[in-house]
Amino acid sequence: MSASSASLSLLQAAATAAGAQQYPAATLYVVASPIGNLADFSLRAVHALSLVNAVACEDTRVTAGLLRHLGLDKPLIAVHEHNEQSATEKVLARLAQGERVAYLSDAGTPAVSDPGAVLAHLVRAAGHRVLPLPGPSAVVTALSAAGCVSAAGPGFHFAGFLPAKGQDRETGLQAALAQPCPTVLFEAPHRIESLADRLAELAPDRPVTVCRELTKQFEQIDTLPALQLPAWFAADAQRRKGEFALVLHAPAPARVDDPGLPPEVERALRVLTRDLPLKQAVALASELTGAPRNALYEQALAWRQAAQQTGDDEDAAG
């Protein structure tokens, strides 16, 4: 099958799968694009791109290549971090004429550590619709492989790229490590080794999932204690190349015998966790006692884990 025939088949499949949905005019379509593997592009996104009158994008060269792969040819409008405010006027002019306009960043979901937030805000402020087409995201892809976000836990924190250097970078890293939940960081290849060194110094026992070149041919995903990160990168020069997402797993829960909480606070927390879901019990205990939620959550989680361990031991003994 020729490339043109393959593109036509793809567009036909996209129209069949997604054509029944409405695609209103005078709307900005915020489209998530592949983070590496073109096969991850959704049929709905393909169909929407076939309908729009123009495509605004972070880098016209990157998006032009994607459109060629799909067999599409659309006018392109460069909208990136250096011109997002001024370039929005071109998009608004088209929307005012009733046109459909798509926006794509270079990879992943726009406006998440990528341009697009200013554009979406200004389009909505002008009275036009902003319609998201979800898809690839390095954040959730990394978390799904790390396996460290519990349905009963406090969720996760997304820190994005740390500041490039200086005290701002150190402050950002300290804040990321202080989160009570898993935290996702992005990092550039020329700074990944210095980040690994600092993580090894600050949190040697903290598990870190390193995701390199997610969804691409030479994708690597590995979980190891932060102390081992410098050696892991030093072992193979290829490991220092590409795009990185790091998941800092949550800090270890407080020990059951940790006397950090006053006895009266512990008593209130025990009563509440006996009859309420963990999150609700922690929130109510914090409101009643004034104790910080993080400490209460860690203590309640430690009790639960200890109880589960005891149950497992008893089952094994039985």
Rank of each mutant, 00 (worst) to 15 (best):
L195Y: 07
Q228L: 12
D205L: 08
I221S: 14
F218Y: 14
L195W: 01
R198A: 08
L199W: 07
R198L: 01
T215P: 02
Q217C: 12
I192C: 00
I192F: 01
F218P: 13
T209N: 01
E219A: 11
P204L: 01
C211F: 05
T209M: 04
D197Y: 03
A231S: 14
K216C: 04
F218S: 13
D205N: 02
I221R: 11
P189C: 05
L202S: 12
A203G: 05
C211H: 07
P189Q: 10
L229E: 09
A226I: 06
A226N: 06
A200Y: 00
D222E: 12
P207T: 12
Q217W: 08
P225C: 14
R206N: 11
A231P: 05
D205K: 07
D205Q: 14
T209Q: 11
K216Y: 02
E193R: 13
A231N: 14
Q220Y: 01
L227A: 15
Q217G: 06
K216E: 04
L224G: 13
L224Y: 12
K216A: 02
R212I: 04
P225E: 08
L195P: 02
Q220T: 13
P207I: 10
T215C: 05
A196T: 08
R198S: 03
L195H: 07
S194P: 00
D222T: 11
A200S: 13
Q217T: 09
A226R: 11
E219G: 06
A231I: 10
L199N: 06
R206A: 15
H190T: 04
I221Q: 14
A200L: 06
T209P: 13
A200K: 08
A231L: 12
P230Q: 06
E201Q: 15
R191Y: 07
E219C: 12
E219D: 12
L227V: 11
Q228T: 12
I221E: 12
S194W: 02
L224H: 10
V210C: 08
H190L: 06
I192H: 01
L202W: 09
A231H: 11
R191K: 14
L214I: 11
P225H: 14
D205W: 01
E213W: 08
F218G: 10
Q220P: 05
T223S: 15
A203H: 02
K216M: 01
I192G: 04
A226Y: 05
K216S: 02
C211L: 10
Q228E: 15
